[in-house]
Amino acid sequence: MNPNLTLVVQGLAFFAVVWLVMKFGWPHIIAAIEERQNRIAEGLSQADKARKELADADARVAEEIKKARAEATSIVDKAQQQAAQIVDKARQDAIVEATKQKAIAAADIEAQAHKAREELRGKVAALAVAGAEKILRREIDANAHKTLLDQLVTEI
């Protein structure tokens, strides 16, 4: 029970253990803990960043989709307009063409009719002349009375 030399040895042993712990134990453990804390902090901040980036990307995607949809709608609208225009123009063209053709045909018909009339008139005149010739064969000299006969043809 009385203190003896053992206490000196115990005190020195204690200092030796403290020195060993200070030299070979403590710094390693503290370093490992601190490094892990840094890693965790880094990981958390990176996760935060990634989350923010994801939200940004989502917003951007939504905007892009909206834009694309609007563009598609406008393209469809334009196409419909253009189609209507084309159809309209085709109709107009057709009407114009038809009118033109009709006019050409009418002119043709007129010309034919005129021609036919002229022909008929010529034939009637010839017939008349032939008739008159037959009647007046002797008295009328075709050449002498040509002027008269032509006048007659025009009058008919």
Partner: peptide
């Protein structure tokens, strides 16, 4: 002392940040 140092220094040496 051996038990304490053994345990402590052993884990200190093997301490990883993982």
């Amino acid at each position: 002392c051996a038990a304490f140092l053994g345990l402590f220094v052993f884990f200190a040496r093997r301490a990883t940040a993982g």
